[in-house]
Nucleic acid binder design. Sequence first.
DNA 1: AGCTAACATTTAGTCTAGCTAACTAAATAT
DNA 2: ATATTTAGTTAGCTAGACTAAATGTTAGCT
Lengths: 150, 150
Amino acid sequence: MARTDTRQSRPSTETVRVADRIHSAAIRLLRHLRVADTTTGLSAPRLSALSVVVHAGQIAIGALARAEQVRAPTVSRLVKALERDGLVTRTRSPEDERVQLVRATARGRRVLVGGRRRRVGALAAAIDALPRAERSALSRAATVLLRMDL
Amino acid sequence: MARTDTRQSRPSTETVRVADRIHSAAIRLLRHLRVADTTTGLSAPRLSALSVVVHAGQIAIGALARAEQVRAPTVSRLVKALERDGLVTRTRSPEDERVQLVRATARGRRVLVGGRRRRVGALAAAIDALPRAERSALSRAATVLLRMDL
DNA sequence: AGCTAACATTTAGTCTAGCTAACTAAATAT
DNA sequence: ATATTTAGTTAGCTAGACTAAATGTTAGCT
């Protein structure tokens, strides 16, 4: 290692080390939780789309395509599948008759939050076994991570 | 909310809240980093398989299938594709001539660690902009998360 | 030798997801 | 009124991932 790196243009080796450990921790965490919950039966693209819809309340096909970084026909098909499964409904916008507003059904919301609840539950059980100091370390880190712009 | 929940069989609402925020943070983090690095050109299953191979050093097709929770033919194809791209090689096991041992090539390792390096680099840049106290909060959290059994 | 189990591949078929191009319908501009 | 733009769908294509079933090979018994 070549002396101390204090250039502001490049992260210090210590920062890189922290980044690496956070990265590993996030990967490990989500992998374990995913294994713990395969019960939604939805593919990743569908789950992601549903998540955006639920979060947005209601959203047009085009906006959803932009959010998911895919083309409109792809979303059109995704939404059709979600609709077939009774997870979303669509209605024409009253202001602009061209746009289709997609909304989650109660069942769609249940599927999403149910899966989330199971994953979070597994994680919470593990966190619950930690000493108080470590729990609050996690809490502080979550605050920092959620505020980061990236 | 019905009074304080102090049963040790179920995490406290506070713990669940921390779990929820860590979960969200991890999802958000990896999503952003994945978008920031699409340069490997590998699909998720291939990347995952390559990762297991690199981590294991060498591994049989069947064991890889079990690790990835798919059937043998699926892995057989995945490995064939990775082999075509020069990322892995396979050799028959000397002890058991039925098994194909898959090993990563130098290029395979480079692809994997290169992608990781880019993602970690993007994260490190963001962390570098944080005040010292927040950086060490992340460091402590990483330590805790990596030690957790889950 | 002969039988059975295990490892991997091939075959044949399904499903998902992504794309472009061409279309319909509605809104907006000229 | 005519033309253009915008939103979405449909059709047709490619690529990838998955499966079950059949097959070839090798190992290990008895």
